[in-house]
Design a protein around this nucleic acid. Sequence first.
DNA 1: GTATAGTTGTGAAATATTTCACAGGTGGAG
DNA 2: CTCCACCTGTGAAATATTTCACAACTATAC
Lengths: 205, 205
Amino acid sequence: MSIPEPTIKRLCKILSTLEILEQEGNSFTSSSKLEQISGFPSHTIRKDFSFLNNPGRTGSGYEISALKGAISQSLGLVGENRACVVGLGRLGSSLLEYPGFNNGNFKIVAGFDRSVNKIEMMDSTVELFPAYKLEEIILQKKIDIGIIAVPADVAVAVAQKMIDAGVRGILNFAPVRVVAPEGVVVQNVYAVDYLRFIASMINQR
Amino acid sequence: MSIPEPTIKRLCKILSTLEILEQEGNSFTSSSKLEQISGFPSHTIRKDFSFLNNPGRTGSGYEISALKGAISQSLGLVGENRACVVGLGRLGSSLLEYPGFNNGNFKIVAGFDRSVNKIEMMDSTVELFPAYKLEEIILQKKIDIGIIAVPADVAVAVAQKMIDAGVRGILNFAPVRVVAPEGVVVQNVYAVDYLRFIASMINQR
DNA sequence: GTATAGTTGTGAAATATTTCACAGGTGGAG
DNA sequence: CTCCACCTGTGAAATATTTCACAACTATAC
Ligand SMILES: NC(=O)c1ccc[n+]([C@@H]2O[C@H](COP(=O)([O-])OP(=O)(O)OC[C@H]3O[C@@H](n4cnc5c(N)ncnc54)[C@H](O)[C@@H]3O)[C@@H](O)[C@H]2O)c1
Ligand SMILES: NC(=O)c1ccc[n+]([C@@H]2O[C@H](COP(=O)([O-])OP(=O)(O)OC[C@H]3O[C@@H](n4cnc5c(N)ncnc54)[C@H](O)[C@@H]3O)[C@@H](O)[C@H]2O)c1
């Protein structure tokens, strides 16, 4: 039985929440605590968990580490998904050290910028390359996911190169709608969309 | 009749798409063209538009500027929503000049950072203030929406100050789940959630 | 004029998702 | 032990959303 998309999105958020709870020293939680933190109703959360295999124990709650495992497994978040960041300006350099990008199932294995100078000056734990090596390195390092942090006018071209080189997913921060062929998953993070959503909730509900 | 939330989110994205189309010199479009760009099925788009008042003309398509107006109006995106950015590091300084934040219904009217030095050195068209003036300026400039771009460990405190000062919406980029009382709309942009969503689509569908 | 290929808008049907209700379990206090 | 307050898991009901189908319209070409 396939998991509904709204459930997948909630599970992704809950996974982050669990990591935060764990960092704070908790090892158990419950659907009602998760409701308080995440805002999703507890019955929805329990229903979501019913797509997992036996994550909790009737009567007591959920053991966080087991729950994390069950969610990761059901979402197919196994193994190590390799990603790269293209465009090492303000946003891109921040993303290189974004906590959580290098935890668990993800690893940033390369950064790219057009400016060779910038690459040489930057000091990062991630290996950096000039932009013209993008396709070569994606193939060589078997990179699955490309993260776009370049100016809008070159974003589509960068996306095309990534697709040609065989990435299977793209996370695009540039204010351009990247489209991809069947088989490549794209998420466009267009910041103004969130502002609009906030404003529409403020102004009408 | 209130607009379904999935429809609202799609309309927000379509609005961005329309702006891009308009910049490219188009003045008409159709649901099938929008399908190609946005990925949403054309019948869903038309159904979404049925919540607006008469945006298009049967037979021909949609006039982009009229459509933009109809969407904005229905979403309550009227007047000028004033916003501020707190934390002017890499992400924050990029957000200050993010195109689209200062277009149409939004205006960034202030930036804040803890480092007074940074504020004095930075050169921006937006007025900048030291962080301790946050509440004062939010009140004075009647700021509706706060954007958080500070490190995770201070994000909750910053959010609380914003709430106390009376913002009605918060867009949080720090990897912390900000919770707010009824009446304050929060959107948490937790980048790793998108990576997880991409990975789960790649690995299972 | 007439065909043709496109278009919108929208009820109704088909699906998907959320909510409800509750059986049944747990653990701690007295 | 009993009581109490909490918990999960899940079918079934209620609701929300998407999809379909098509009448009606428009613009263009010939
Ligand atoms: N979605 C969001 O939340 C969000 C937030 C901030 C910025 N942005 C967007 O992210 C992008 C980057 O913003 P920024 O402020 O970091 O810009 P920036 O100007 O600071 O950095 C852009 C970097 O890209 C590099 N670059 C340019 N062309 C390139 C190419 N063809 N290949 C590789 N590298 C190239 C430049 O050398 C530069 O280092 C912009 O499109 C911006 O609008 C999105
Ligand atoms: N969601 C995303 O897509 C995304 C992307 C990149 C970064 N981030 C997050 O955004 C945040 C900022 O990242 P960054 O790389 O720009 O960090 P940064 O270190 O470059 O900048 C942080 C800035 O916040 C300022 N600051 C610290 N405490 C403050 C306070 N109490 N009040 C006001 N200003 C304060 C600092 O002076 C600094 O200028 C981090 O939490 C990061 O994890 C999110």
